[in-house]
């Protein structure tokens, strides 16, 4: 016998990954600290080490609430960077 599937269609196409940034030398690395414990420390150190190894510079560092999307003004400032490190969970 036939029954309905319970999940229905998906309403929005999933967002794809951005293309790779290529050679990082001369580019700016940003950090979006999502306020999870030690996220700023971890991401900041990663940005510094990545910059030292590639010749990139560490640019803008922003912070957002872990439970909410980043506000538009934070995203606008992060747009100054070509690479942004973010995402840390507890």
């Amino acid at each position: 016998m036939e029954v309905y599937a319970p999940d229905g269609a998906v309403g929005a196409a999933p967002t794809g990954l951005a293309p790779g940034a290529g050679v990082l030398a001369g580019k700016r690395i940003g950090v979006l600290d999502n306020s999870k414990p030690n996220a700023g420390l971890l991401l900041g150190r990663m940005a510094e080490r990545l910059a030292a190894r590639t010749g990139a510079g560490v640019g803008v560092v922003e912070r957002k609430n872990a439970a909410l999307p980043a506000p538009d003004d934070v995203l606008a400032r992060l747009a100054e960077a070509q690479v942004v490190l973010t995402g840390s969970a507890d």
């Binding site: 319970p6 999940d7 229905g8 998906v10 929005a12």
Partner: peptide, 12 residues
């Protein structure tokens, strides 16, 4: 998931 909740799917 961005699942679309229609009345039908809610009814299912």
């Amino acid at each position: 998931r961005s699942g679309m909740a229609t009345r039908r799917i809610i009814a299912v």
